[in-house]
Amino acid sequence: MTPLLATEHLTMRFGGVVAVDDVSFTVNAGELRCLIGPNGAGKSTLFKCLTGQLRPSAGRILWRGRDITGWDSFAIARLGIGIKTQVPSLFDGLSVLESVRLALRRETRERARIQAMATLDRLGIADLALRQVALLAHGQRQLVEFAMVVAPEPEIIILDEPTAGMSAEETARAARLIRELNAQHAIIVVEHDMKFIRAIAKTVTVLHQGRVLIEDDVERVLADRRVHDVYLGKAVAPQQQVTV
């Protein structure tokens, strides 16, 4: 079976820094993949390559076997790849409802409104519909971006630290939602919270210094010594360990 999304020897250099180093990984339709790795491992950079925000220095990106390396962001989005970025990327001056309606690019005005409300409802933020995005709390902003990504029902949903800044209750709801969404969408999610990962993951890929350190079943990965070392900063040059 052709994987939904695959990279082949993907490399992204910034001057001397190799942020993504020869990464080949695949995600199949319907899969829920966790991507973990310490700060600076290259997770966000990998996502930027996948979504066309960065042009990789080398390697290829395949969508259902088709080479999409170097495509523009909007063209990649139209394939059905949605991303929630690490730093929430929102329409600050617009209302929550308008933001989600805009995400429903292919719907008519009225249908977009109905579907947007349904998505907000599903995320438990229907009451925020008419609020201006800029005035929301951080956790609420995360949920708004979540709604914008999920609303158009992309084939694959990329979530870069989706629960950062969320309350415990919001996080639990997000975990439930991710599992629910996984029934219809493939998902790649970056998280630092091990409880959260245990709750949702099947396969986990660990990225370290731009390379894939290990990729395996969640329990085996979390039991792996190397993963512990990497996360605790042993055997690694001192790096910032704060999770944002």
Partner: peptide
Amino acid sequence: RRAELLGY
């Protein structure tokens, strides 16, 4: 950026 990522 967000507009692009939504496919515009």
